[in-house]
Design a protein around this nucleic acid. Sequence first.
DNA 1: ACGACTTTGTTCAGGCGTTCACAAGCGGTT
DNA 2: AACCGCTTGTGAACGCCTGAACAAAGTCGT
Lengths: 229, 229
Amino acid sequence: MPQSRPRIIPEATVARLAVYLRVLAGLADGGRSHVSSGELASAAGVNPAGLRKDLSYLGPCGVRGVGYSVAGLRDRLTDALGGERSRPCVLIGIGRLGSALADYAGFASRGFEFVGLLDTDPAAVGRRVGGLPVRPVAELEAVVAETQATIGVITTPAEVAQSVCDRLVSVGVRSILNFAPVALTVPAGVDVRKVDLSVELQVLAFLDQQRHGTPPLVAPLRAAQGSAR
Amino acid sequence: MPQSRPRIIPEATVARLAVYLRVLAGLADGGRSHVSSGELASAAGVNPAGLRKDLSYLGPCGVRGVGYSVAGLRDRLTDALGGERSRPCVLIGIGRLGSALADYAGFASRGFEFVGLLDTDPAAVGRRVGGLPVRPVAELEAVVAETQATIGVITTPAEVAQSVCDRLVSVGVRSILNFAPVALTVPAGVDVRKVDLSVELQVLAFLDQQRHGTPPLVAPLRAAQGSAR
DNA sequence: ACGACTTTGTTCAGGCGTTCACAAGCGGTT
DNA sequence: AACCGCTTGTGAACGCCTGAACAAAGTCGT
């Protein structure tokens, strides 16, 4: 009865499992019944050996000589990642980015449902976004209580993100996705994931410069040539 | 003459440098002249020793016993990350997310300027987003050529992302930020960074389940209690 | 029914990133 | 001028993750 699963799953692996799950969903729609680790890996953009290692955290999932059952693995991954029950989310900060997230179809199809939209701006309150009315952020605690939301998504300006975060934590939200460009401080037991769009572009800019500037990377140390300002 | 800098900067470090830069910009606006690594680290949400190691890749930046000059370090980081010259970007896929990115102020203030917006949908073409008209995606090559864009941002549906990517690469774009939920294949010398919003939520869902299910982590294999699914 | 091929699952080594701890260096003070 | 405290910069250990090679296992063909 090898039902025990004592080993913990690394977070990097979890993120990849989510990718595999999406690929598998596509394959299932396409009518495929089996996949090999190689094919799945190339579709997910990872190494085949790494993929097998990732899946091994869930116990034996495939059949040697054949591959993985698409539907079977999909269900297994779905369970591992938290089942397919709907997960209620609240979204604070209904600006352009918030609005885009609120009716991003990719979330709903994966079980994430926005059940509360909040904003401070009186002009935004009352508007309907993705079929849901925007409510004043003062009602944050009430909204979380009545919707039993477990995930909070913060798309506010940086200045108020920490205060919004604190209020979310105080009413029991323990999973937070932060788009505001600040490092949030949370007590132990609360998970925060940060998405920083500016940083992504900045990294690309660095890599681009590095490509062009590899030869003349003499560095403007102190002999900075007329670096105005 | 220790002006050589043979060591390369790890990508994880580059991402953090971008964070430090933003914090420093805020401090500079606040009139601060010096910061210690401890203060800067806590504002950025990282370990002080790690921050110092990150900065050490740029050579000595601070003054022992005093800390870092806010303005000096800011300029140093700005240079390291590609200078403050404006970087032209093209954005393909002007849906809700694309529109949100197109006039996200956080980009422009950091030197990233959208110079081309492209979409296939005839209803979107011609619309103005963030002061820029949306052009048909057929003109992608022309737009890149005339604007000299170096960064491409893909917010299209997954099905067409690879084809858009290929076309970007074919006209010389070597830095790509991909929001489409697919793994893009690119030739060597091209950098792709992927932002996958669904994956972020899925990881949170997993962590949440893990918290609740740690004691009863017997796994709801088939003995799921009333999981109406 | 047997053999060979295919594909998984696992084990091992390598590299990278992070963290801790200490020495070096600078400013302020007496 | 010398001392003391503070902070940076760096060297080394630790742990994690990644990538490759091998053995187990199951299926297909003959």
